[in-house]
Simulated scan of single mutants.
Amino acid sequence: MKIKNKMRHCKIVIAFVFFFVIQNIYSQDMRINYDMIYKEDSLSTETVAKKMVLLVQNGESKFYPEKQYEVDSLRASGFKGFAVGDHDFYVIKNKQNTGSKYYFLLRDVYRITEPVKLNWKIQKETAKKYGYTCQKATVDYKGRKWEAWFTQEIPVQEGPYIFKGLPGLIVYMKDAAGSYEFSFTALKKNFYKMELENISPKPLDISLANLKKVFIDYYNDPFREMKSGNVKAKFKDEKGNDVEPDFKEMTKNLQNSLRKNNNPIELSEAIKYP
């Protein structure tokens, strides 16, 4: 009986040590890469592919395009030249369980901050994905039904975009309409670390209603700043000769493009353009 008790005690100790080691490994900062595929136009079969990065630092996280991460890394290391980034799907989640979403328009950056409320339903179904044992979970979020797969082998309650709160890292997500898909590609412990909100100019806090108004105003007159002379821009033809811009035609083309971009990830918050 004493031997059995000792063996049971040893198993408990080993389990606690293993749990401590695993937690210690994944409690540190990390970079997680995802492939993202989505449809901008719900009426089209065309998709857009982006490589995305989830940075986890000091209990907070940042999700945004890898292209922008590379630009930020260059600038943080002292680079002063011109570099084109990508600000789509830009989200920062903090320790207080709130999420900030950033919207870049012309020379301004707008920030909406709200609690991250996700009513996850964990299913019994399991599967092997990307070499990890994963479990299925579902959630409804702002007009979309999502299926997610998470692994407790990476005990970080994080995931792509605004999604978090499961007992392990989300390695795959797809909405029921097949419009958005996130796929895990890599986890790195060594990466260039920087302040998460290293955004210039300083973001302007705004409500969702006012943000929609900003985008509607832009839709109605997208080249107002250029026409007024507040923003200087030169227009050239294919031969490099200066030409007078046709703002009416440019406005029409841009408005057509904005109307086609009718399939945002937060479907219930889609802007209804005229």
Rank of each mutant, 00 (worst) to 15 (best):
Y132T: 02
N198K: 14
K93F: 01
A177L: 12
K101F: 01
P245S: 07
A176R: 09
V48R: 13
M194Y: 10
E66I: 02
S257N: 14
R31N: 11
D86E: 14
S183Q: 11
V13F: 11
E181P: 01
G159D: 02
K101N: 06
F223P: 09
G159L: 04
K260L: 12
Q123I: 07
A127N: 14
F104M: 02
F163V: 04
T251P: 01
A49P: 01
F215C: 05
Y34E: 02
A137G: 06
I265W: 03
K51E: 15
D86F: 04
C134Q: 06
V171C: 05
L106F: 00
A127H: 10
F63C: 06
L254H: 11
A76V: 11
G81E: 08
F184P: 03
I37S: 13
F89D: 06
F163W: 01
N5H: 09
P264A: 09
N198C: 10
P155M: 09
D29Q: 11
L166N: 05
M173N: 05
A127G: 07
L105K: 10
E181T: 14
V243N: 05
M226Y: 15
K128I: 13
T251R: 02
I14F: 12
L211N: 03
L208P: 00
F184W: 06
I271R: 01
G165V: 05
I122H: 07
I12A: 14
R8E: 13
E238D: 14
S200L: 12
M194I: 14
A76M: 09
N210C: 04
T138H: 00
I122R: 07
A186L: 08
K101Q: 12
F19Q: 11
Y103I: 05
P115D: 05
E125Q: 11
T47Q: 10
